[in-house]
Amino acid sequence: MLHAFGDHDPADPDPWAALAMDRSLPFDPEAKAALLRDQRSPSRQFLLPFVRPLARTTIVLAQIFKSVFPRFPHAPRFLHWMIAKGMKHFLTPDANRLILRHFHLGSQVLRFIADNTTPGFRPTLEPMQPATIDDVRDNLFLKHDLNIFNFLIQLNHELDRRGGEVGKVERVDFNAIDPDAVQIEDMPKGRLNKIDLQTAIELYTPAYAFWLTDRDFWRAANSLQLDETIGLYCARITGEEKHLAMITNAHPMVPESTLKAGFRLVLHGLATEVLHGFLCELKAKQAAQDAAVLSA
């Protein structure tokens, strides 16, 4: 991957090249390359520093407004139409792919947990396999937030009914973890598709705060701290805990300020990529062990 960042100069090493070559994180190579290209873009370097303080100021104003009108306006369809339009016309192809990919990975991880804690039971959740930007218009972001809480409630209700718990599984079921199932169409590459992922998220977060109810925004912001919960479930199932070191959205019972929701959302995406990559590694390791037993 080093060639993508130019030749190496020991007197002036490229930080992005070092991150590209680093193998400490279990990360899909194409997704990692997309994230690094997006992070080193001019948009993130020069536009984000101006956008972030303005976006956070707007969140404060939206929250003041919502303290008086907590349920007005409530226009999730308009919000997602606006997000989809922005993605289609302004976001980089890498940013768009990473956004759509995130829904696929999150869905696979939740199914993985269900398969290994409550076999035969599948929580009732909204489908999360967007292939195009237009799929976002079906309230995709809002449904994603609802899925996480509904999953935890339904899963634990079923565990209580069975008298079970989340614990180490003798043979882990990895059928839900399938990177080849992530099918996304080509993304727009117009002249204006230059906005990076972080800048876009900072811009979208105030819109989320204004066009949804106060309860919807609060729930969305605090769903990010469930990274720790999902990570712990996977650690108990597999008996492996290395991925937990990458979880920075933690302590769900002590919520963070909604002002940092944009940055925390980027970290949420990173944590999901790392967790999914880690599960892919464990799946490959189990398959190799099975093959060795068969050939013995």
Rank of each mutant, 00 (worst) to 15 (best):
L91C: 12
V51H: 05
R71S: 03
L36Q: 06
T92N: 01
Q63K: 11
F78W: 12
L61M: 11
K66S: 06
N96Y: 05
H89L: 08
P53F: 09
Q39G: 04
R97D: 01
E30K: 13
P53W: 11
F90H: 02
F46N: 12
R40S: 15
Q39N: 07
P70C: 07
R77M: 05
L47S: 10
P42Q: 08
K88S: 11
A34Y: 06
F78P: 00
F46Y: 15
S67M: 13
H104S: 03
Q45C: 06
P76A: 08
Q63P: 00
L35N: 02
K85S: 05
F90T: 01
A84I: 09
S43L: 04
I83R: 03
R52D: 10
H102R: 09
F72A: 15
A95T: 02
A62T: 12
M87K: 01
V109N: 02
G86T: 03
F90N: 05
R111A: 02
R97S: 06
A33R: 15
P49F: 08
L35Q: 07
L110W: 12
M82T: 15
F112W: 03
L61R: 11
L105Q: 15
P76N: 05
I99R: 04
F65M: 03
D94H: 04
D94W: 03
W81V: 02
G106M: 11
L110R: 14
P76V: 07
F103A: 07
E30Q: 14
A62G: 15
A75M: 14
V60C: 06
Q45I: 09
N96F: 04
G106Q: 13
T57R: 14
H74E: 08
W81T: 10
K85Q: 10
H104E: 01
K85N: 01
M82S: 14
A62Q: 08
I113D: 02
P53H: 12
A55V: 08
L36G: 05
L48R: 14
A75D: 07
F103T: 03
N96A: 04
A31D: 14
L54R: 14
K66G: 08
I83M: 13
P73G: 12
T58G: 02
F72K: 14
A62R: 09
F65I: 05
K66I: 10
T57V: 00
L61E: 08
T57C: 04
D94P: 01
I83E: 04
K88C: 00
H74L: 05
R37K: 15
